[in-house]
Design a protein around this nucleic acid. Structure first.
Lengths: 243, 243
DNA sequence: GGAAACTGCGTAGGCGATACGCGTTTCAGG
DNA sequence: CCTGAAACGCGTATCGCCTACGCAGTTTCC
């Protein structure tokens, strides 16, 4: 991380996320717009990484002075949060009658967003105000679960479980810095390599079944199926108390 | 993240992680040691967050000049990676005859480390060279799975699944900035709150079953059990091909 | 025809990482 | 011993970044 971690004492206000902005009549017409700034920020983060995103570079790209951006955004952190909510977008439709299919689509949607915008993973990991879109995703997942008859906190937990898997798996298969996720060269060259016999056997094995590759959608879905199976088992057992 | 996301173009070299360091005879005795610097860095990150960790502050704490640290560490990024491998420590013992119990202990161990050192989550999410300890954890998990008879890549996948859940769940229950993980006040005060009926019903519900609380070990284990159940189901089905 | 409400943005302050080089310490080899 | 090479501590300086402040120009309202 290069320290990209923005973790300030308190999360940003999020006023821009939730309050409706209206332009007052007075004053010159703004040359930029919040939307354009956010869009360009996403573009930079996508192509060159979040770490290289600076207010000066962003302003230059927009043909504006650095400080002009601060007429639209109170701070860089707030901008990043806005970028995050923007790329998350709208959740897919979910159906309480089909929690499994709904959660599957939901999970694939989250994963896709993280794959398209690797920097978003780091943002998701920071404490922040949830934006309208992210909240809508939460709502969609809970709605999908609302047909299961689970108590509220158990629903929340299902969400944590699925969300946890999606995030973790994405983190392992997405590289924020456009490099290899697992760099094992150091291990292989180390004189201590015999401390890791199983790992070396696995890594050097020629036997590669594509179905399991987590960098592919199929690999991701394979793991997701295990998670949903686990949930299913729980729900079934719950419906039929003693067998 | 406040941007904690340190994502530079390439991961740090990791020489210090893997190469055995030996002090040459020449020159004055070092006043500091790599161990002491790493330890103090962890201390700062634990108590004040990774974002507040700067080379100057760290040096001051150690009673040294800022640039003295660079005699021990090539860059701050490398230091952070060393800190990560240090806090991960040694994995618990695992047993191929009991993959489930082993993976459970493994997962709890990872979770505990992340809870003790919240900043480590951000580091784990960045691309980096795996250190000896982290590699040992990987080895331990694969060793636990080596008794299942799965092909190598399927073992890797199991590891991804469990690791994914652990990371994701930790991320959701650990706050890197010592604040509330979910800040819903903005949602509740928003005029758009009726867009999230299920969420609001769940959140405002009085019904709280502690068993599901993911911030507790019990809640975490509850989700973990679903994951392991899913794996178990897969292994069983695999052993009995057509029922 | 002001005054008020905005706008763009130059300037400057403060902090952080770290390259460079100097003076000093220590030891190996003569 | 003595001397030069190897290491060490660290002051200085550069560069990049976020952002507070304030000014000058613009538009609208009364």
């Amino acid at each position: 991380m290069t320290t990209e971690d923005r973790d300030s004492p308190g999360p940003p206000g999020g006023r821009l996320l939730w309050e409706s902005r209206q332009r007052p009549g007075r004053g010159p017409r703004p040359a930029l717009s919040l939307e354009r700034i956010v869009r360009e920020g996403i573009e930079v983060a996508d192509t060159e990484g979040l770490a290289t995103l600076s207010m000066q570079r962003l302003a230059a790209r927009l043909g504006a002075g650095t400080m002009s951006l601060y007429r639209y955004v109170p701070s860089k952190d707030e901008l990043v949060v806005l970028m995050f909510d923007a790329i998350i977008g709208d959740p897919p439709a979910t159906d309480p009658a089909d929690w499994r299919g709904s959660l599957r689509g939901w999970a694939l949607g989250v994963r896709e967003a993280f794959h398209r915008h690797p920097w978003a993973l780091a943002v998701a990991g920071s404490s922040r105000v949830m934006g309208p879109n992210e909240t809508a995703w939460t709502e969609a997942a809970l709605y999908a679960l609302s047909g299961t008859g689970l108590p509220p906190d158990a629903m929340m937990d299902m969400l944590f479980l699925v969300n946890g898997y999606v995030r973790g798996a994405a983190q392992l298969s997405v590289d924020p810095a456009h490099g290899p996720v697992f760099d094992l060269t150091a291990v292989l060259e180390s004189e201590r390599r015999d401390r890791y016999p199983t790992l070396l056997a696995v890594v050097t094995s020629d036997e590669v079944t594509e179905a399991y590759d987590h960098r592919t959608d199929r690999g991701f879905e394979w793991g997701l199926r295990r998670v949903l199976d686990g949930i299913d088992l729980f729900l079934t057992a719950r419906r039929e108390p003693q067998e």
